[in-house]
Write a protein that binds this DNA or RNA. Structure first.
Lengths: 160, 160
DNA sequence: ACAACTGTAACTATATTGGTTACAGACGAT
DNA sequence: ATCGTCTGTAACCAATATAGTTACAGTTGT
């Protein structure tokens, strides 16, 4: 479904800043860790700045850092800053309103999608960037991700 | 994030079949209700058939119907049949493994994404197609969807 | 045999994301 | 003051996923 890694990248970026502990990071440096182009990072930093999660400084010796403590930034804050829509979408074109199912399915689907969004949000609201940093340290020796088999396996650090 | 309406359409399709109560539906007829092309529907019906949610019959007087009772089909079944990946994706290219954050962020992110997937799945597992059909009837007079303001508003039955 | 269906291939169209180059403007250091 | 180092942003192109369309082979009831 989601073809976008925006959330993953945004969490990565803010984690780097928490790790750097208030020292401003250059977009070029962040891009190296994320393994992408610095402009992609700067675009994302602008969105994060609009949501008051980071502050950036232009000019020489500039860079970006967290706008507040790492334990005051939840993954929900990040999610809302960089992912504009909910988890699912409705029909591209509205269904046939002359069909008894078509005319009302949208209302029911919206109720369901709301339940889903709420569930996702409550998971994300309970994890802070500080939590992510803490979870980072214990796994120095297990560089490969493990996830439920149901999900198409996603490797990290694979060939680089 | 999700640019896909596959889940919404699949729920719509199976709801139609539950509504039709075992009478086989033609793809052309389903497409009319969904407001799309019959081939799009047939493609999706093939996926749903592979997951044993519907059965189709070729030839004259053919069509598709539910493979089992509407209360035995959950939205999780549908989700797993038509949406291949989890809610979020990891980085497109693996992060820099020479960075202390980059080398381990994938592991931590996968843990988080698993939590999210699990939350979504447990919501969907508790709603059946029969539930959707029941929720359909009471809303004959409120054709416009209402969702949480956080989500970009999605209208149904808008201009058709 | 014929008409009415599904299954499927082969396209095209559309949208979103990511990557790249280029450059204006901010700012610290000298 | 000006120079080098940054961010912010516009304007592209590339890659990917989904949706829509036409066409047709194969299946089946009548």
């Amino acid at each position: 479904m989601s073809t976008s890694s925006r959330f993953a990248v945004a969490v990565h970026v803010l984690t780097l800043m928490a790790w750097a502990d208030d020292e401003p990071l250059k977009s070029e440096h962040v891009a190296e860790s994320v393994n992408t182009n610095a402009v992609v990072i700067r675009r994302m930093l602008c969105e994060l700045a609009e949501s008051k999660l980071v502050v950036s400084q232009t000019g020489a010796m500039g860079g970006s850092r967290l706008a507040r403590d790492a334990e005051q930034i939840t993954l929900l804050d990040i999610y809302q800053a960089v992912e504009s829509r909910g988890v699912f979408s409705l029909h591209r074109h509205p269904p046939n309103r002359h069909c008894p199912v078509g005319v009302n399915i949208g209302t029911v689907l919206n109720q369901v999608l709301d339940e889903v969004d709420t569930a996702v949000e409550s998971v994300l609201a309970n994890i802070t960037i500080k939590d992510v940093v803490s979870r980072l340290q214990p796994c120095v020796s297990s560089p490969v991700a493990k996830r439920k088999p149901a999900r198409k396996e996603q490797m990290v650090a694979a060939g680089n």
